[in-house]
């Protein structure tokens, strides 16, 4: 069984967000910036999501709130036409 979209998002965050805590300890609504993700790390998360889901975030989505939580990222990917699993 392949990963769910949420699990894939969590894998990208785990690989790129450089969080001082384990992503598994954070809920889907938890604020990743409050958990210690820096602005520079959020750029790597953005690029990691683009690679994983084969999408390109438009300029209007290149803002802090879009990458602030697993839920926010899921919502953005859905808006870009990613089929959620």
């Amino acid at each position: 069984m392949s990963e769910t979209t949420r699990e894939q998002i969590r894998d990208v965050i785990g690989a790129h967000a450089n969080l001082p805590v384990d992503i598994r300890e954070l809920g889907d609504a938890a604020d990743l910036f409050a958990a210690g993700m820096t602005s520079f790390a959020s750029v790597n998360v953005m690029l990691g999501l683009e690679d994983t889901f084969d999408v390109e975030f438009p300029d209007t989505m290149l803002k802090r709130s879009v990458f602030a939580s697993v839920d926010a990222i899921l919502e953005a990917l859905e808006a870009l036409g990613v089929a959620l699993v």
Binding site: S39, F40, S42, V43, L47, D59, K63, R64, S65
Partner: peptide
Amino acid sequence: GRRGRLLAANQRAQ
């Protein structure tokens, strides 16, 4: 570039 747009948005938001 594009990474810069996100960095700039973060900088302004904070």
